[in-house]
Write a protein that binds this DNA or RNA. Structure first.
Lengths: 136, 136
DNA sequence: ATATGTGCAAAGGGTTTGCAGATAT
DNA sequence: ATATCTGCAAACCCTTTGCACATAT
């Protein structure tokens, strides 16, 4: 919990219970949308309002605490800010795995005449677990 | 125009004027959101309604005629269905360039234990034109 | 002490829906 | 001929906003 407080303060945000709760929820889930955060966070803080979540999601994005993961045909999810990475999105179970962008992969993304700031890579397919299930 | 008719029929959709107009708009723009399609299409067909665009965007996605390009912090854009490719999104002028995924790049996306169906790669940065401008 | 954050309820705006008339096949 | 599509208006629901009270620093 103290980690979230530090994270917020480091990024010029006051550490309120609402914000640390939201961050905890995002951190535990890995990738999570607004409604799911709301459901999750209400368990400990029933009074925490949806409006507060919306306000803080915007604020925490602006202050580089979290980042948006736009999703095909559904609401954006959010994750804690970290280095660029690849999302492996399972179309069967919905789970999202992170996969590192290795140095060799990074070179591949180096496209001439384009000054890259950040990469957003979503790979849709079937995860290992679901591949096994469909074999049965 | 006849191309759009063929494209629609090939994918089990009736070829209405509304649909060909929407496809023409998407094709010309390359990447375009719903409101922009509406503005564009109204010039030739003032009566064409937003509701019709929404209905058809959903339908044409389902029938593999177009695909969604989710965007960070803004409304999704749409493009004609084509092979996976990389989007180079300029954070300065907003333009989106397509970049081919070469065979070597494709191998890089081959992540073990994940059965890839389709890749969605958005690279945010500064395009060549805008790099030149900021040098002046 | 005070600037900032929160919760509530209302407003706003984008998207969807139902239906009667129109259209593609 | 008929199943499907369109346009309109209303409904819906997600997101934002304003304000009085509460809280972090």
């Amino acid at each position: 919990m103290t980690n979230y407080i530090t994270l917020l303060k480091k990024n010029d945000l006051k550490a309120t219970i609402q914000r640390t709760s939201i961050l905890k929820s995002i951190d535990h889930a890995g990738h999570i949308n607004i409604d799911e955060i709301y459901e999750d966070v209400k368990e400990q803080h029933p009074a925490l309002s949806l409006a507060t979540i919306y306000k803080n999601i915007i604020l925490m994005q602006q202050n580089n605490v979290i980042i948006e993961v736009p999703m095909n045909g559904e609401k954006s999810k959010f994750e804690l800010k970290k280095d660029d990475h690849i999302h492996l999105i399972c179309q069967h179970c919905g789970e999202i795995q992170d996969s590192k962008i290795t140095k060799e992969k990074e070179q591949i993304l180096n496209i001439k005449n384009f000054q890259l700031n950040n990469a957003q890579i979503n790979l849709y397919g079937v995860c290992q677990k679901c591949q096994r299930i469909s074999l049965k």
